[in-house]
């Protein structure tokens, strides 16, 4: 049993600006814990979390994988980057936050190099303007507002993720039923050659949450 990272250093003021870990976060932690042995066997060199927020998820995977890994974290919200950094310190793991959208400045150097990618995106369906406005504001609403089908932000990253994944790399994504999970899976296979499984799902209040795990479609890698 891997303990949930210690977040006692974060305050109510932090959670005014940064998403507080909730059911979706814990579902992703549970999915990573279930994959603990596989993740260790992968012997990753680099992990990358998009939208690291409080830093809870990256601190957790750092507890699984130990110090022989570079834990890169990006967030569009500068306050979230500060929380990610301090959560690393609090949990005695080295997290390296970068204040940016997705992974744009890393894509040149990390082409097909990242072994584990984690993304718990803003997946909540909202009116379209609310989603784009929330990203531009770089505040807490950007952590959940996702546009008409909740996929405004996720879709942008889904276009780019394959280019970052190493040959044995895996990508963990949180989604809800309204995002059309089978549709995501079909598109990622057809457009990007990424095979996926739903590795965990749970109902939390009105939300039906899923964790998807993508890997390269081996039949295509070998061809």
């Amino acid at each position: 049993m891997i303990p949930t990272p210690d977040l006692s250093h974060l305050t109510a003021d932090d959670y005014d600006c940064v998403y507080e870990p909730a059911e979706d976060t814990f579902l992703l932690l549970d999915a990573l814990e279930a994959d603990e042995q596989e993740l260790k066997q992968l012997r990753p060199r680099i992990t990358l979390e998009i939208g690291s927020g409080s830093g809870c998820v990256s601190a957790f995977i750092a507890k699984i994988l130990g110090p022989s890994v570079l834990y890169l974290c990006t967030d569009i919200n500068p306050h979230a980057c500060r929380c990610t950094l301090s959560t690393g310190v609090q949990n005695k793991v080295a997290l390296d936050p970068i204040n940016v959208t997705f992974a744009a400045p890393l894509s040149l150097r990390l082409k097909r190099s990242v072994d584990v990618i984690l993304f718990n995106p803003p997946y909540v369906p909202t009116i379209p303007d609310e989603a784009s406005g929330a990203q531009d504001a770089r505040g807490i609403a950007g952590a959940w507002a996702g546009g008409v089908d909740g996929m405004n932000v996720t879709d942008v990253f889904l276009e780019r993720v394959e280019d970052l994944m190493s040959d044995r790399g895996r990508f963990y994504l949180v989604a809800i039923a309204e995002n059309d999970v089978p549709g995501i899976q079909e598109r990622m296979l057809r457009l990007h050659g990424l095979q996926s499984d739903i590795i965990l799902s749970r109902r939390a209040g009105r939300e039906h949450l899923f964790v998807l795990r993508f890997v390269r479609d081996l039949s295509r890698v070998c061809s």
């Binding site: 890169l72 950094l85 390296d96 970068i98 744009a104 400045p105 894509s107 040149l108 150097r109």
Partner: peptide
């Protein structure tokens, strides 16, 4: 903490800036 391990992975990503944009 910008450590040099991170710096070694960061390139400029301004629109159209595609050459000599690292390090």
């Amino acid at each position: 903490m910008v450590r040099l391990i991170t710096h070694n992975l960061l390139a400029c990503h301004v629109k159209g800036c595609n050459t000599n944009n690292f390090p």
